[in-house]
């Protein structure tokens, strides 16, 4: 299996091919619908973002509450297509790794090719397995959004598959 440290460089991302199984280690930022809407809103107003988008890996996930003794609850991916409206704007700001589940729209794939970014699929419904690979979690903003707040996860050997590579090759049919 391929090991990839996050944040990842464009050079490393360019080497990945659709279908590769990869273990991610480093930082993943969780954000789903409501957080994306706010991030893109801040960009539109020209305001600073709550974290460095350059090189950031965003994980489309809203975990269940952490039980005692664990950094996070169950935390599998949510459907990525709902973030398609926001992703191109964020990719153009330097965010280069997306992790979620399910296919992406043509505009996202275009923006990925333009910015040499990669879309990884994590296994939906494998929330307990993925939680075991999260070593630390810290809420960094939008706490009022509850499960949808942005958290910085420190992950180790987080299993994903390259679903769409930086050249736009995709495992999804149509």
């Amino acid at each position: 299996m391929i090991q990839l440290s996050l944040p990842a460089s464009r050079g490393e991302l360019a080497k990945l091919r659709a279908g590769d199984a990869v273990l991610l280690s480093g930082f993943l930022y969780t954000a789903r619908d409501a957080a994306h809407k706010r991030l893109v809103g801040l960009l539109g107003e020209g305001k600073p973002l709550p974290f460095e988008l350059r090189g950031a890996a965003i994980y489309y996930a809203g975990p269940s509450p952490a039980p005692e003794g664990l950094p996070i609850g169950s935390c599998g991916p949510t459907t990525s297509a709902r973030m398609d409206a926001y992703a191109p704007a964020l990719l153009r700001q330097g965010h280069n790794v997306m992790v979620g589940k399910g296919p992406r729209g043509a505009e996202v794939v275009e923006a990925m090719k333009e910015t040499c970014s990669v879309y990884f699929a994590a296994t939906g419904g494998a929330g307990a397995l993925l939680a075991m690979r999260v070593k630390a979690a810290e809420t960094i903003c939008f706490e009022d959004l509850g499960t949808e707040a942005i958290r910085r996860l420190t992950v180790e050997a987080f299993p994903v598959i390259v679903a769409i590579d930086a050249e736009g090759n995709s495992l999804f049919s149509a």
Partner: peptide
Amino acid sequence: GQILQNMDLATENGLPSCQDT
């Protein structure tokens, strides 16, 4: 394989198997 492993880990750790409960 991950889905199968996930079932075991959920039971072992008392965690919801999927975060969408």
